[in-house]
Design a protein around this nucleic acid. Structure first.
Lengths: 125, 125
DNA sequence: CCGTATCCGGTGCGATACTG
DNA sequence: CAGTATCGCACCGGATACGG
């Protein structure tokens, strides 16, 4: 199905799309996805790689991603226990557009910064 | 510069990228961008097209996008006043990766929905 | 090691009312 | 028409402590 044209989404779909996008919009999901895109990671490896995330938010983020079918969670019941997270096929396919967006953001970092300073400069002082 | 590989972003850039992505993550920005991608719109036209947005959030969203240099705001001082919003060049370039993401979301709506039901089904009841 | 439970401050966002 | 101002709540997310 071609989404780029002809499909004027009915409002219900529109809201559902927004919900999906809000997932990638929350604070940590994108970081987690990008890390997992390099391969499977353990919980603590993710926690270490992402500086400044609380374990609460990491578990919540991973739960949501798992619920959406984007990451898989495999428990190895040893002592101490070991849990590995990995992108599913769908998760890997999501990584592509996300990477494109990340690349765009990176390329326009300074342009955006300049625009902000310009905007703030003519109002604040 | 090639972002897709070899560039292990230093943490400062990483946070700035996250900030940019948080813009597209907030509730209305993407909708506004997609609407403006079809051409310039007046304030009230945007408000009408997006069902359920308060005028407060519309102004805030537009202000932020303007501050980032993504949309331009042109005032026609008539009575009643008229304000048109339009994507800048940078805004149009952002629309492309955003459309890709939107297309992905649309394509995977049912897969995600199914995954969620499956996940909820084996835990809740 | 991997989580869950609880508390609590910051803020995103809607509702409403008022200006130019 | 296109905003700004104010209030109020819900909820996100950090800190901390505890359990398997």
């Amino acid at each position: 199905m071609d989404v780029t044209e002809s499909t004027v989404s009915p409002s219900s779909d529109c809201r559902r799309v927004s919900q999906v996008l809000s997932r990638i919009g929350d604070k940590w999901s994108v970081l987690v996805i990008m890390l997992l895109h390099r391969g499977p990671h353990r919980f603590s490896a993710l926690k270490r790689s992402i500086g400044g995330i609380s374990q609460r938010m990491l578990t919540l983020t991973l739960r949501n991603l798992e619920r959406d079918g984007l990451v898989s969670r495999t428990v190895t019941p040893s002592i101490p226990p070991r849990v590995d997270y990995e992108l599913t096929e769908m998760g890997r396919s999501l990584a592509e557009p996300v990477k494109a967006l990340g690349a765009w953001a990176f390329q326009h970092l300074d342009a955006i910064g300049a625009a902000q300073t310009r905007y703030d400069g003519q109002a604040d002082p």
